[in-house]
């Protein structure tokens, strides 16, 4: 029973990790590529970490929960790095297949001039 649960968690994790990187490879512009790693890879690795916690809880004496720490950390940091990367891409004016709402383009120009002001 335990073996089936572990196999399921490990396979799900590996497949989602794989799909995340496949998205990184296949999708056509940067903003679309951002979706693959932030979602699929995070859940994939989270699932692998839970598998590891289950495995070591039954393997050694006593329960082992510290893998949850990495899972939590990844779930908190993945959106933050995605947000920063998207911001950097907008700042660098990367090509996007998606249309930008008109108002935000003006805003972006204003904020990028702000950034230059801050620097000097």
């Amino acid at each position: 029973m335990l073996e089936y649960l572990l196999s399921f968690l490990i396979l799900t994790g590996a497949i989602f990790t794989f799909i995340g990187s496949l998205g990184l490879l296949r999708l056509r512009d940067f903003y679309m590529r951002l979706h693959g790693p932030t979602k699929a890879t995070t859940l994939g690795v989270g699932s692998l970490l839970i598998a590891s916690a289950v495995f070591f809880s039954n393997h050694d004496a006593g329960i082992s929960l510290h893998e949850i720490l990495i899972t939590l950390f990844l779930f908190i940091t993945a959106p933050v790095s995605a947000h920063l990367l998207a911001k950097a891409a907008l700042h660098l004016n990367l090509h996007s297949f998606a249309k930008m709402p008109v108002k935000s383009i003006k805003e972006k120009e204003r904020s990028s001039s702000d950034a230059i002001d801050v620097k000097h």
């Binding site: 572990l6 490990i10 994790g13 590996a14 990790t17 995340g20 990187s21 990184l24 940067f30 590529r33 951002l34 790693p37 890879t41 995070t42 994939g44 690795v45 692998l48 970490l49 598998a51 590891s52 495995f55 893998e67 990495i70 990844l74 993945a78 790095s81 990367l85 950097a88 891409a89 660098l92 990367l94």
Partner: peptide, 25 residues
């Protein structure tokens, strides 16, 4: 582009965690 490379690095380190956990099991 540069953000693409940074995103790839980000994915690589998460993948490395996955590899380590699998090796650990």
């Amino acid at each position: 582009s540069l953000p693409d490379r940074v995103l790839a690095l980000d994915t690589l380190y998460v993948n490395a965690i996955a590899l380590l956990m699998l090796l650990g099991i």
